[in-house]
Measured scan of single mutants.
Amino acid sequence: GTVHVGDKTYHFPTPDAAKKFAQEIAKKLNLQVTVKNGTWQVH
């Protein structure tokens, strides 16, 4: 899975790992999470 946070991109071996990371970052930074075609965006 891929997660975009601002101008950074993180790659994870599984979709679940990407989802978990995106949700944790969003919670920590009080941001929104959207997913499109398996790519997570934190914004």
Rank of each mutant, 00 (worst) to 15 (best):
F12K: 01
I25R: 02
A26Y: 01
G1H: 14
A17D: 08
G38D: 10
Q32M: 12
K19Q: 13
G1T: 12
P13G: 08
K27R: 12
V5T: 03
P13A: 13
G1D: 07
T39I: 15
L31Q: 05
A26N: 02
I25A: 05
F21I: 02
D7K: 14
K36L: 13
D16V: 08
V33W: 05
T39Q: 15
K28I: 11
W40A: 04
A18S: 02
K19R: 13
T34R: 06
E24Y: 15
Q32S: 13
I25L: 13
V3I: 02
K28P: 02
I25G: 00
G38K: 05
A18W: 02
A17R: 07
V33D: 01
D7M: 13
A18L: 02
Q41N: 12
V35L: 14
K28R: 13
T14A: 04
V33M: 08
K20E: 11
V35P: 03
V42A: 03
E24T: 12
T14L: 04
Q23I: 15
L29V: 03
P13C: 13
G1Q: 10
G38M: 05
G1W: 13
N30M: 06
G6P: 01
K20F: 09
G6M: 11
V33E: 02
K19H: 10
Y10Q: 01
N37W: 03
K36G: 06
A17H: 07
P13I: 07
G1F: 14
D16H: 10
A17Q: 11
T14G: 04
L31E: 04
K20Y: 07
N30E: 05
K8A: 07
K19F: 11
V3C: 04
V42M: 03
K36N: 12
Q23D: 10
V35I: 11
A18E: 00
K20N: 10
V33I: 12
A22R: 00
F21Y: 07
Y10F: 11
G6K: 06
P13V: 08
F12R: 00
H11Q: 07
K36Y: 08
E24S: 12
E24C: 13
K8C: 12
E24K: 13
V5W: 14
D16P: 04
K28M: 11
N37G: 09
H4Q: 14
G38F: 07
K8S: 06
H11Y: 13
G6R: 06
I25S: 03
Q32L: 12
K19T: 05
A18G: 02
V3Y: 00
L29Q: 04
P15E: 13
A22I: 04
G38I: 02
N30Y: 04
I25H: 03
T2N: 06
K27N: 09
G38P: 03
V42H: 02
E24G: 10
Q23V: 12
H4A: 08
K27Q: 10
H43E: 12
F12T: 00
V33A: 10
A17T: 05
P13T: 12
N30P: 01
K8T: 07
L29K: 05
T14I: 03
V3D: 00
A22H: 00
K36M: 12
G1R: 11
P13F: 08
G1A: 12
T2R: 10
Y10P: 01
L31M: 14
Q23S: 08
V42G: 02
N30R: 06
T39N: 14
T34K: 05
P13S: 12
A22P: 00
T39M: 14
D7S: 14
N30L: 05
L29E: 05
W40D: 03
Q23F: 15
V42D: 03
V3A: 04
H43G: 15
N30T: 04
K27A: 12
A18V: 02
D7R: 14
L31K: 04
H11D: 05
H4T: 11
L31S: 07
F12Y: 02
H43N: 11
I25Q: 05
T39K: 12
Q32H: 13
V42I: 07
N37S: 04
G6V: 05
G6Y: 13
P13N: 11
Q23A: 08
N30S: 07
A17N: 04
H11G: 04
K8D: 06
L31G: 11
I25W: 06
G6E: 06
V5N: 02
A22N: 00
E24P: 00
T14Y: 05
Q32R: 09
H43T: 12
F21G: 01
A26E: 02
G1I: 07
T14K: 03
G6W: 12
H43R: 07
Y10N: 01
F12S: 00
K19I: 06
